[in-house]
């Protein structure tokens, strides 16, 4: 008995088989089309939802001088594009360039120091055996539970004693300190996920100490490094309170502190255009860093979750 015979005897498929198959095919196609439409509609809605703040801030920063003085409703230029708001923003403090450079210096230095220290600390906690290892690790993690505002005063006093008050370097050290617990935790996890055998194979191949770390292990923990770098950068770039408290001279202000001055306005009048221009200036590096590293970042957060 052939397969055709079997089908011929089957009561459901017995009638007009070509027509039935065509109908089933059409049904499948319709279902697929429906699914695609729903998928793309939902996707477009989500994109709109997330892109809206950026679009609104971007558009309203290009309103002209008089329009910029009023509340941003509607949030796009009605009397032509102009860069008046950016000029106004530049007239605050020591100029927008100076403050951007301040912020960039502090943020990049924070990223560098945090990555360096947490890389070594994470490696040590993951691979070496030493007394009180777990107690020390828990202690480091426990500092995450202390609200940062509560140690602001002691930090201020310590920096003053060290003569690092009102300096970008002092601020950087504070940011690194705040960033380290999370970063060490992150890097320890990243190193834990690297099989020990790979390190042992490298040791047999003659790689030791820093060469082992740089040539073999660093590429493997790169997702973790990217995660730590993104967090360090964003937190240092956006941090406001410590910068406000620890910096006292105008020319050292970072962007968030400058923004407060802009937001407060002059003589009580808020320049909405300048505020939006500041928002744009502050957003661009964050977007840039995130888009640059997001591929690694996702892998870093997922590390250990699967497999």
């Amino acid at each position: 008995m052939t397969i055709t015979d079997t089908f011929a005897q089957h009561p459901v498929l017995s009638a007009d088989r070509p027509a039935q198959m065509a109908a089933a095919k059409a049904l499948r196609a319709a279902r697929a089309r429906k699914g695609a439409i729903a998928y793309h509609t939902a996707g477009a809605a989500i994109v709109l939802f997330f892109a809206a703040p950026f679009v609104i801030a971007g558009l309203s920063s290009f309103r002209n001088g008089t329009e910029a003085q009023t509340a941003p409703l509607p949030p796009w230029p009605t009397a032509g594009f102009s860069v008046d708001s950016y000029r106004t923003l530049d007239s605050f403090g020591a100029g927008i360039w100076q403050h951007t450079v301040n912020s960039a210096l502090v943020s990049l230095a924070t990223v560098l120091l945090t990555v360096l220290v947490s890389l070594l600390a994470g490696y040590g906690f993951s691979r070496y055996r030493f007394p009180f290892k777990n107690a020390l690790f828990v202690l480091i993690i426990a500092t995450l539970m202390i609200p940062f505002q509560s140690i602001l005063t002691p930090l201020f006093i310590i920096l003053a004693k060290l003569g690092l008050n009102n300096s970008l370097f002092g601020l950087t050290l504070v940011y690194v300190t705040l960033q380290l617990p999370f970063s060490v935790f992150m890097m320890r996890n990243a190193f834990d996920a690297v099989p020990k055998e790979i390190e042992e194979a490298a040791r047999i191949d003659g790689a030791r100490d820093l060469r082992l770390l740089a040539r073999v292990l660093l590429p493997l923990v790169l997702p973790g490094v990217a995660t730590v770098a993104i967090f360090a950068f964003l937190n240092a770039w956006n941090e406001f309170l410590a910068a406000l408290v620890l910096l006292s001279s105008n020319e050292h202000y970072t962007l968030p502190v400058l923004m407060m001055a802009v937001r407060a306005g002059r003589l009580g009048a808020i320049n909405w255009g300048a505020v939006q221009a500041g928002v744009v200036v502050m957003t661009i590096p964050c977007l840039f860093v995130f888009l640059l590293l997001q591929r690694y970042y996702m892998r870093g957060l997922m590390a250990g979750a699967v497999k």
Binding site: E197, I198, E200, A201, I204, D205, A207, R208
Partner: peptide, 15 residues
Amino acid sequence: SERGIAMVFQSYALY
């Protein structure tokens, strides 16, 4: 690395 040995691991341990 100084013992004149080479090792093959169960988990391959390739880079």
